[in-house]
Structure formats: structure tokens, C-alpha cells
Amino acid sequence: MLAITRRTNAEEALWIGDNVRIRLAPGRSPNQVRIIIEAPREVNIVREELLGRADPSDDTESADAV
């Protein structure tokens, strides 16, 4: 596990391996942050609260889940 603190007003990024980039950006309101995940299509990305609700291998559902 990695826990880090980032600046709230600056867009910053983290890399996982060589092909997954996670960017943190200010949200629409002061108490929100946007998490932008850039990864190859073969990397499955599903929010934890949606696990078990939909099949993440179904392209139509996973597009809405991210």
C-alpha cells in the first residue's frame, strides 16, 4: 500500500508500472478531486462499489462503471 499527500491545486500524476498513469486533478467543487486513469484497453478498471453489480468484461457496462 502507498499513501501519499498531493497538492490540491496542482495537477499531478502517479505511474503504476510502465503503462498505467493516474492523474489527480481538482474537482468541480472545493471538496472534490478527479481521478483520471490512463491505461491500455486490456487493463480492467472498475470502481470498488460497483464490483458484483455488473460483469466488468461487458464493454457496455464497464464504460459506465469508470
Rank of each mutant, 00 (worst) to 15 (best):
residue 9 N to D: 12
residue 34 R to L: 06
residue 38 E to W: 01
residue 34 R to E: 15
residue 16 I to L: 02
residue 45 I to V: 15
residue 16 I to N: 05
residue 25 A to Q: 14
residue 40 P to T: 12
residue 18 D to S: 14
residue 26 P to F: 01
residue 20 V to W: 10
residue 52 G to C: 04
residue 44 N to I: 11
residue 37 I to M: 08
residue 12 E to S: 15
residue 36 I to T: 09
residue 11 E to W: 02
residue 64 D to N: 06
residue 53 R to W: 13
residue 65 A to M: 05
residue 11 E to Y: 02
residue 50 L to P: 04
residue 59 D to E: 05
residue 15 W to T: 05
residue 11 E to L: 05
residue 51 L to N: 04
residue 47 R to W: 03
residue 48 E to M: 00
residue 42 E to R: 12
residue 31 N to Y: 12
residue 28 R to P: 03
residue 13 A to C: 07
residue 8 T to E: 09
residue 60 T to Q: 07
residue 3 A to M: 04
residue 16 I to M: 11
residue 57 S to W: 10
residue 47 R to D: 12
residue 4 I to Y: 04
residue 64 D to Y: 00
residue 4 I to D: 03
residue 26 P to T: 11
residue 13 A to L: 01
residue 5 T to G: 04
residue 21 R to V: 15
residue 65 A to S: 10
residue 8 T to P: 02
residue 42 E to D: 13
residue 29 S to L: 11
residue 56 P to A: 00
residue 44 N to R: 00
residue 40 P to R: 06
residue 12 E to C: 10
residue 47 R to F: 04
residue 55 D to Y: 07
residue 66 V to H: 02
residue 45 I to H: 08
residue 38 E to L: 12
residue 28 R to C: 09
residue 24 L to S: 07
residue 23 R to K: 08
residue 41 R to M: 01
residue 61 E to S: 03
residue 50 L to T: 08
residue 40 P to N: 09
residue 33 V to A: 02
residue 47 R to S: 11
residue 31 N to L: 05
residue 16 I to R: 06
residue 1 M to Q: 06
residue 42 E to P: 00
residue 65 A to K: 00
residue 45 I to G: 00
residue 66 V to M: 04
residue 44 N to A: 05
residue 54 A to R: 02
residue 22 I to V: 15
residue 35 I to R: 06
residue 6 R to W: 04
residue 38 E to P: 00
residue 60 T to I: 03
residue 28 R to Q: 14
residue 2 L to A: 09
residue 16 I to V: 07
residue 1 M to G: 08
residue 41 R to Q: 11
residue 5 T to Y: 12
residue 19 N to H: 14
residue 47 R to H: 09
residue 23 R to W: 04
residue 63 A to H: 01
residue 31 N to P: 03
residue 14 L to Q: 14
residue 29 S to A: 11
residue 33 V to M: 13
residue 39 A to T: 05
residue 5 T to P: 02
residue 34 R to Y: 01
residue 10 A to W: 13
residue 36 I to Q: 04
residue 49 E to C: 05
residue 11 E to N: 12
residue 58 D to C: 06
residue 32 Q to W: 10
residue 17 G to E: 08
residue 13 A to D: 02
residue 60 T to K: 07
residue 34 R to D: 15
residue 16 I to T: 06
residue 7 R to W: 05
residue 10 A to R: 05
residue 42 E to N: 15
residue 44 N to V: 13
residue 22 I to C: 01
